[in-house]
Nucleic acid binder design. Structure first.
Lengths: 152, 152
DNA sequence: TCTATATAGATGCATTTGCATCTACTGGCA
DNA sequence: TGCCAGTAGATGCAAATGCATCTATATAGA
């Protein structure tokens, strides 16, 4: 007996909707940021992690773990953020290869302004369309699609 | 009384999971295609639409409607597909501005080979993790997040 | 200690995306 | 017919992404 490898109509439908809806939502959130002359979502993700990390900051490889960006992507994104004065790079004492990234005051301010727009998008695009119960259901279902795989 | 614009924790959680999971799934599906030396997902989307359209083909603007790609993106994607011999561009009689895109035999064959890999990814990543009922529930919830907005 | 291997992060180069604009044709209307 | 706004699609240029590789430091083992 072999493994089943042909997607059922139900899986295909769910997959297609997931692909389509997630792309649409990202696009709309990005558009909202652009309309307010704010940086793209990727910047928010990084600033958010750094803001949560506080004054201790984070190492780039920790950002990679948390955000799913590729290494070279983080490297250049941080360069842009630094050029904009939103983060600062600090030499780290016990590892000469590495650095610690810390968000600056300007970075926090930018994050705050982005959140005002981004949060509004989230409410409009999702919050206004699903009840609290639906949201819980959706989160639970998506949670089961995460990697590394949760226990099945 | 003003509109609520601050996302609840439940919305934020659902949004975050949707963003993260969809990105992970796309990435894994893309990786599977790459591992088999096949073209990226975007090519599949277009070839799929064209295969469904049959011999009559589709106009580029119809592809844009169906796939959500930007106009310039479709324009260049079609150029690449044509260069690879997967589609052909036909002058259309009643509109001198436009063209009709038709999938070739090689295009159909490529689509078939992509589906063998892509379909398997879909099964592994989603089909194996959710029951049929869960899939229906997920599709329904995502359906309510589509644009243009379904009746609410 | 010396060497080999692994890890942190940067970067050169090709490809792709995004934006704005351009060309070509259409269709409405005076 | 002649003009003009609108639509279909292509494209120049700048920015971002992906891939492979590179440098520098760290760590493990002979």
């Amino acid at each position: 007996m072999t493994e089943k490898t042909n997607p059922s109509p139900a899986v295909i439908k769910a997959w297609a909707r997931l692909m389509r809806v997630s792309r649409q939502l990202v696009e709309r959130a990005e558009d909202a940021l652009k309309d307010s002359s704010l940086p793209p979502l990727a910047w928010y993700d990084v600033l958010h992690e750094l803001a949560e990390a506080g004054e201790g900051g984070l190492r780039p490889f920790q950002l990679i773990e948390r955000t799913l960006f590729a290494q070279y992507n983080i490297s250049r994104l941080l360069a842009r953020l630094e050029a904009d004065g939103l983060v600062e790079k600090l030499r780290v004492a016990d590892d000469g290869r590495g650095q610690t990234i810390r968000i600056t005051g300007k970075g926090r301010e930018t994050r705050r302004r982005m959140w005002a727009v981004y949060g509004r998008s989230i409410v409009e695009l999702v919050g206004a369309r699903l009840s609290n119960d639906d949201l819980e259901t959706l989160s639970a279902l998506l949670g089961r699609l995460r990697y590394p795989a949760a226990l099945e």
